[in-house]
Write a protein that binds this DNA or RNA. Sequence first.
RNA 1: GGGCGUUUAGCUCAGUUGGUAGAGCGUCUCCCUUACAAGGAGAGGGUCGCGAGUUCGAGUCUCCCAACGCCCACCA
Length: 890
Amino acid sequence: MLTRNIQDLPTVYDARETEENIYKFWEENEMFKADAKSQKPPYSIVIPPPNVTGVLHMGHALDETLQDILVRYHRMSGYETLWVPGTDHAGIATQNVVEKKLREKGISRYDLGREKFLEETWDWANAHKSRILDQCKRLGASFDRSRERFTFDEGCSNAVKEVFVKLYEKGLIYKGKYIVNWCPRCRSAISDVETEYVTEHGHMWEISYPLKNESGAIIVATTRPETIFGDVAIAVHPQDHKYSELIGKKVIVPLSGREIPIIADEYVDRNFGTGAVKITPAHDPNDFEVGKRHGLKPIWVIDGEGKMKACGEVPPELHGLDRYEAREKVVGMLSYEKFLLRTREHEHNVGKCQRCGTTIEPLLSEQWFVKMKPLAEEAIAAVKDGRIKFIPERWEKNYLGWMENIRDWCISRQLWWGHQIPAYHHKVTGEMIVAKENPDPNVWEQETDVLDTWFSSGLWPFSTMGWPNIDSDDFKKFYPTTTLVTGFDIIFFWVARMITMGLEFTQKAPFSTVYIHGLIRDEKGQKMSKSKGNTIDPVEIIDKYGCDALRFTMTSLCTYGGQDIKISDERFEYGRNFANKIWNASRFVLMNLDDVDNSNIDLSKLTIADKWILDKLNSVAKEINEDIKNYRIGETAHVLYDFFWNYYCDWYVEIAKVQLKDESLKLNTQRVLRYVLDMSLRLLHPIMPHITERVWQLIPHTEDTLVSAKKGNNSAIMLAPYPVYREDLVFTKEAKEMELVFETIKSLRNVRQTFNIPMNLNFNIEIRATEDEKPIFEAIESYVKRMAKVDSVTYEDESVPQPPKSATAVVFGSKIIIPLENLIDLDTEVQRQKKKVDKLIAECKSLEARINNPKFMANAPVELVEQTKLRIAEIKDQEARIMSLISNLS
RNA sequence: GGGCGUUUAGCUCAGUUGGUAGAGCGUCUCCCUUACAAGGAGAGGGUCGCGAGUUCGAGUCUCCCAACGCCCACCA
């Protein structure tokens, strides 16, 4: 167990020990569990379900961290907060993994048969199911594990059937023969978005098709000569004079002997290739359209495995040959028979299967589709009218552009792992029905195809909430969800489909905000991938630097524009160092709270420094709340880092050391130290949950605080109210006056450094202060003494001559003189002062240029003019005093 | 072909109502001062990609160009 003894806390923060114990503490007390019966306003997020067989990668780490930040922030801000975890059955991806395992054993899925194979895959999925979500625990994810879902579980499957049947009944799902992207390796159709195009070097072959019954030929350019056996026509442009004579005539397909017509179609580009195209409707999407227009029957010559079909159209020596081998052979044959006229190098885009990288074979086959146009209308409207907002906004354009040109979605997959399509064929009559319930299995046989994985993930925001049961507590309380957090790479795959389906089936947008973040890349900006070997394992980073360090670093790298994030191992030192800083500052505070009472700060007894830090904290709290609401999450990391390190640690804690020595100030200083630490930890908690909880548990809290953060018998920072702006903690005047402390101390430190004065030699200083500034100097004397190593402070009148061998710091309207006797080199001091003057002169010059510009005086806002004048006066004043100093020295 | 993003200190990047440029890392000096060397103190470092325009004033708004990156469409 974690020690509660302050003296035993290690000087270096031990992330590993802390994180494990703290997460257990939250889980054991069920602090992530949402209450659907709560009266609090709801805040809900559904996780983008990672693949069930997946392993946690940096992309998840970022995505989960951002969700957790939002969830923790809202939970602390008084919302009933639900974060639904779960996994995706990931049709092709999972099936591929299992098939690979089988292949290692020398068997294929066909050897097992569908039923056995599914059993095998279920076993595999169940075995890995909890792995990735368990890894998310190491990220500190505060999701509600009691509500964990799986896209292939009973409830989700039920939702899938419901949706399928309803869409079918509405005529929005249809089955038909169309050209689809076919992956010969997966032996399945895939959708357009699952096809990625890459530019490849290839060849363009010009082939001569002799005219029938007369001399002459038409020359056709193709990149795919092996499909020649599937040719059903040659097409030319109707206005192409080169070929107008030939339209309607017939040619003989080389190597085949079949006769095909020459047809005219607008589709043909006169200027490309030879201006004549061979039409192969079974194996090319454009050709399919042309063929349909001209009533030509397609001829299949390539099968589902990408091999030449053993049919009458294809010469026997090519039967069963792989499409690429066949291509080579065909080229050879064409060349031998003198049909091949020319071979050219050619660059073209080739479609690849997103899952396995295999070159797509456009294939005419019978598939199921969702008619998207009617569904897209509402999905477009919802974004246009602001029911759904994208952050950053530019993704809206991207989404709308895609939606407005949407094409039908091919949802059937010739796989086994997935939701089997709820359509049934009559064994005798062949009649087909679509139904939620399986009719008599003796008579009806279910469709063998399964659905695209994204079909079920498209229902995720409501299928996880109990839909189609719209009376379920979760659906009523937590649907629609609030925010969806994801990367831009799945806007089309997932976000667009959730919006479409959500609107269609719940009449509500499934979420109101889509928060899109950048993608994680390696330090060179390359996408991380296993094959490139440039991945960084988040679990390793957590082991090495700690979860909070990982989270903080990644958060700090998130920009408002959602730029991609480049990371390297060393970058996480940033977060680790900050965690260590928090740890040690906390240790200091805790060590000095040993005899603190249990009360709140006495606001009537605050010192100027107390007021300053409270004022700063207050404005930080205000800013952080605004930033999170506006999804400027990276900014919150920077603001908190700056506040905690550069304000609280560097200045307030040092000042507190002085105040703690003063018995009259000690008690209230302890309270301020504790209060600011407590609030800082709360502000930081969404980003760095573990360390903040760990420290918070060690703070001797007031009774109010403990009650406000209580669940059962325990209080926790993760349940404590998030700090908000407080009117009673605004101390503008004191905050401004503290600048004098900083300027004074910095100036004295500069003098010490410039003249190499050792730390163990203290200064005696003389202050010549203005009337306004003198009382402030008196109030802050003790801070200056300790922090700038000053022994004595005396106040002199400006008329008293300055000691000849002294350095001088001009601070605001006042002058601080440091007599240095033989320690000072007057030339150096002159140089030092000159540098200051130069800076002032430069600033003054540009300001005066403004004032002297009548247009500026006429157009600029009055406050700015006033401010500028004031600043000039200030500069002039300082400048004059430094100049007189210099002349005295020289 | 269409669209989007990026270009700011040696490196990685912040910088939303236009008002004299910031951080982290790195560099140079000094310091183990009883929270922290994963630390403290001080210092140096930028004509904000190029060109023009709007404006009293532009890193910030408009246009052009360049380089790099991404997305969509696609030619057989």
